[in-house]
């Protein structure tokens, strides 16, 4: 049997803003079917990594492969993206249901109508993130946590194989966070791969089974149990900070 290619393979990826490196020579493998957290301090290049995978940044060097193929227009369609919620204009005149339906905009015929199958998928995704009551709500009226759940629902209807999430739990209350983690687990059970920027070092080991520690360069990556160590965290966040001395019972700055 042929071995399955990793969901994501990044080789020698360097991204720079002029002469200031944002990512230095990253080699990262994300096996298919894992939940991987990307952890690192502010300015570590976490968002840049995600944007590079999607081809939104021009790397100075290196390559990105998605499911064994060079990342390009075709492969990017297998990616579901959950942006930081501050990245869009929430005053846009549209409803929750409509934003989720955008996840299926690459389907549909000449006049691009949303058919009944799409509508059912959207309704189901909204139910999955406990937002069905707010389906017809104006998006400007949502709280931060609700905005984040709308983005998660939108990613679900994309039927992607690889999900890239930029701080999916930002501004989400504890109860919602738990139900979102349950959604991630379900994605994993369906054989999908999740790569998520995550800030809370306390919850990272509980929510994710793999981790990449990033601070401009890749400090370490692999299964949570072996990689999420005091030594590696010191290497990522700087050894001088005493609050990193005792992971995973520490908090992110």
């Amino acid at each position: 049997m042929q071995t399955m290619p990793p969901a994501l393979e990044v080789n020698d990826l360097t991204v720079a803003y002029r002469d200031k490196p944002v990512l230095w020579d990253i080699d990262l493998q994300v096996p298919t079917g894992v939940l991987m957290a990307v952890v690192g301090p502010n300015g570590a290049g976490k968002t840049t990594l995600i944007k590079s995978v999607m081809g939104l940044m021009q790397p100075a060097a290196g390559s990105v492969q998605v499911f064994g193929e060079p990342a390009g227009r075709q492969q990017v369609r297998r990616i579901g993206y959950v942006p930081q919620r501050t990245s869009v204009d929430w005053d846009f005149p549209t409803s929750v249901r409509d934003v989720v339906a955008m996840g299926r905009y690459n389907r549909g015929g000449l006049w691009r109508r949303t058919d009944r199958r799409d509508a059912e998928r959207v309704a189901r995704a909204l139910a999955t993130v406990d937002m069905e009551d707010l389906a017809d709500r104006q998006i400007s009226e949502l709280s931060g946590g609700q905005q984040q759940r709308v983005f998660l629902a939108r990613a679900l209807v994309q039927d992607a194989d690889l999900y890239l999430m930029d701080e999916p739990f930002q501004g989400v209350d504890a109860v919602t966070e738990q139900s979102m983690v349950a959604v991630l687990r379900r994605l994993q059970e369906q054989g999908r791969t999740v790569l998520a920027v995550h800030h809370d070092l306390r919850t990272a080991p509980a929510y994710f089974d793999w981790v990449a520690l990033l601070n401009v360069r890749l400090i370490a990556s692999g299964p949570m149990a072996t990689v999420f160590s005091e030594c590696n965290l010191r290497g990522t966040f700087g050894g001088s900070a005493p609050e990193w001395a005792n992971p995973p019972a520490t908090t992110a700055a």
Binding site: L56, V76, P83, T94, M102, L110, W111, Q158
Partner: peptide, 23 residues
Amino acid sequence: ALRFHRELKVATFDPVLAATLGI
């Protein structure tokens, strides 16, 4: 505007999503 209403909408609201959808 009718033919490309989806493209216009998604590229305006969330250009990054548009890119992943091939728009």
